[in-house]
Design a protein around this nucleic acid. Structure first.
Lengths: 230, 230
DNA sequence: CTTCGACATTTGGCATTCCAAATGCCAATA
DNA sequence: TATTGGCATTTGGAATGCCAAATGTCGAAG
């Protein structure tokens, strides 16, 4: 027997390790940095970073190892650690991978998600039904990201979710700037609505195809208009 | 000017870092380990590993950090480092992700690969045209893996290739054992031949669909017959 | 015999130190 | 002036030492 039901064990504090803290700090610093503004490569100094963060080099190095794994930085022995500036081709490739994963998630969502979950799409994203997105592009950008994340979560597949979240980190910036070019926002919304309808109807093949084509459209768009990269 | 044409500069030696060596050693040890035989969790000891490998704890720790990132081990502070035993659901999820990525690669291959590359499939995998795979299952297992890697490489998308290679590490064992159950090998070969034909004909939608269904079939198979996991 | 707590041990996290390779500067030299 | 050789500096890689948390052990107390 146990008394555990007497106490609502708020339990663990378990504050993150310094490595995790350093990782968070560095990642947010990197993803918020305007990489494509300056032409020169950005170099990171282990010793300077550990001074600024107030910790030793060890947790910083471990954090950098993770970031290297994720493709954010590249470490050259005795040369330095550089923030990776992704080329247009690499971005397009990531969008292709994203499209593949998200379309599979849409298929799985049709099989696995509950009716309530599928119907919640319509209520969670009212922006898509209120036209004129050009007037609130910022809010819409957020909704856009959340929408795609929602589809992935409905797929209930851990592997797909974690791979996608990694890709999102790299592509987040692009998605939003792409929205502001041409008539992306309007057509994007139309496609979102079609996707929602397919999901609600549990038409797996259709939903899968619509999501894939939506992603491929973004890839084409970045490929033709993304010259400001590289 | 330079004399460099006088010497055939064999150039760079650049032997790998100890961290990389430790990583390779540990990964091969883990992937070759029969995880699902024993019921208890496998624990790794930093100090023992560094002794066995003849290096200090630092590169071992860095290698373990990478392996943790990739989902091979889990590190609990002051508890130990444990080899992760994936559940059946996780394996099935990875196969779903794999199917999504590979089917997108097939689509891209139809658009990007050269005629020679596409036709090389038929000559590179003669096993598929020689019937009776049951007689040489081991060789066929290798060909099976190589075939799917080949499709992915034909897609010419770095992001898809690197994500897939990670997934393959986790699923490699399963693919081969699944072949030996039921009539998987025969039907698998038929599907491979159909995929090759679709690729040769550059029928992107068809190739994409066939690859996806092939992968989904494996996922279903593991889901129903993979009770020996978890 | 059971329970409990003090203590030794184990273990990963972190800090510090040392090292070798690469680079840059600068003087010596042709 | 242009080039070269060496030395100081920088920088990541690796080794080592220390620490706190967690665990196991074992004996004393009930």
């Amino acid at each position: 027997m146990s008394n555990s039901d007497q106490f609502s064990i708020k339990p663990i504090v378990a504050s993150s390790s310094l490595r995790t803290l350093a990782y968070e700090a560095l990642k947010s610093a990197i993803t918020n940095m305007d990489l494509y503004g300056r032409p020169d490569e950005v170099r990171l100094d282990e010793r300077k970073l550990s001074q600024d963060l107030g910790v030793s080099r060890t947790p910083v190095r471990e954090a950098l190892t993770v970031l290297e794994q994720e493709g954010f930085v590249r470490s050259e022995a005795r040369r330095g650690i550089f923030v990776i500036k992704k080329t247009k081709a690499e971005i397009v490739g990531m969008i292709h991978a994203w499209a593949a994963l998200e379309s599979m998630a849409a298929r799985l969502a049709c099989q696995r998600a509950s009716d309530a979950q599928l119907q919640s799409l319509r209520t969670e994203f009212p922006e898509f039904y209120e036209g004129r997105p050009a007037e609130h592009l910022d809010e819409y950008s957020d909704a856009n990201i959340r929408f795609h994340q929602k589809i992935i979560s409905l797929g209930q597949c851990e592997a797909i979710a974690s791979l996608s979240s990694n890709l999102l980190m790299h592509v987040r910036g692009i998605r939003n700037t792409a929205l502001r070019q041409g008539e992306r926002a309007e057509s994007s919304i139309r496609e979102h609505v079609a996707i929602i309808k397919a999901l609600e109807a549990r038409e797996a093949e259709l939903a899968e195809r619509l999501v894939r084509e939506h992603g491929l459209g973004l890839a084409r768009h970045v490929d033709t208009y993304g010259h400001y990269l590289d």
